[in-house]
Design a binder for these strands. Structure first.
Lengths: 149, 149
DNA sequence: CCTTGACCTAAATCTAGGTTGAGGTTGCAC
DNA sequence: GTGCAACCTCAACCTAGATTTAGGTCAAGG
């Protein structure tokens, strides 16, 4: 399986540390597009290891599947991605990481201002108008703060 | 409704900015325990405004419902919570906020070390071993990194 | 040819944090 | 005594990111 440069899904799962089901899920979401054997089985190229590894890392950095799909879509389709291609993506991720850190720091300073003030029940408390939520990854109450359905 | 110191669910929803359904949901999860009218309708005391406001704020800070339940459970059951009670909780939240910021900053510095190195496909990349995930609120791949089912 | 392990699809299930809807009371006013 | 808004419960649905299960094929070895 290593000789002719393609791998089965189990092989690539072992090499990337992802589960087989997750890899099929990513294909369904369009993040990867393995070729198929005549019998219908997925055959992965070495470039797919990089894509899957990137998915794994980007998720740890807090990007959603959709975001990751967006980044991957900007990779050149014709040629093999270069180190510079990946670096460009990394810089774009760094920017969103910076933004999240800044938000958390703002929230923290607002919290500091509130410790001991006992104002938690009042609309005027700064924490009420934090704007963007600190833990913004999950599903959560989507229509709570003005995003009308 | 304001005269005799108790409110209907719609009133408290309006005052806290929460939806009626969310408040019922919080009761089901044990975060609040309103008394009931003879006919079975919920009657809220003024202290419930504080609890609900706290829930709202704590969520914006990224705490889960379960975490919030834990904090609220530590409030004195006999007497009305004082400003110091709330302050103690705030400090505990600040600690977890600090931890999240620290994690993100670590991840960012690791990312910086990786920009341009092109190592994304290799197990030895520092980003692989980030430990705790940066965006840790959502459901996500729970069994991915060693938390056996 | 036959077994066996790895693969296939599709649909159901899970968690969190609620919302939405159906179908049925309460409670206050007129 | 009736109208009507606001309340009630319970169950189904929603998103994200997968996992699990059911029922079936593929490919290689003996």
């Amino acid at each position: 399986m290593r000789a002719d440069d393609v791998m089965l899904i189990g092989d690539i799962a072992a090499r990337t540390g992802l589960s087989v089901s997750a890899i099929r899920f990513y294909e369904a979401r369009g993040l990867i597009t393995p070729i198929r054997s005549p019998g219908g089985q997925r055959r992965f190229r070495r470039a797919d290891i990089r894509r899957l590894s990137f998915i794994r890392i980007a998720q740890q950095l807090g990007l959603s599947i959709e975001d990751i799909a967006g980044e991957l879509a900007r990779l050149p389709s014709g040629r093999t991605p270069t180190a510079e291609d990946w670096a460009r993506i990394s810089r774009s991720i760094r920017a969103s990481l910076d933004a999240r850190i800044a938000t958390l720091q703002q929230v923290r300073s607002r919290l500091d201002g509130c410790i001991g003030c006992g104002c938690l029940s009042l609309k005027k408390c700064a924490l009420y108008n934090a704007g963007d939520k600190a833990g913004a990854t999950g599903a959560g109450p989507r229509y709570l703060l003005g995003e009308t359905p």
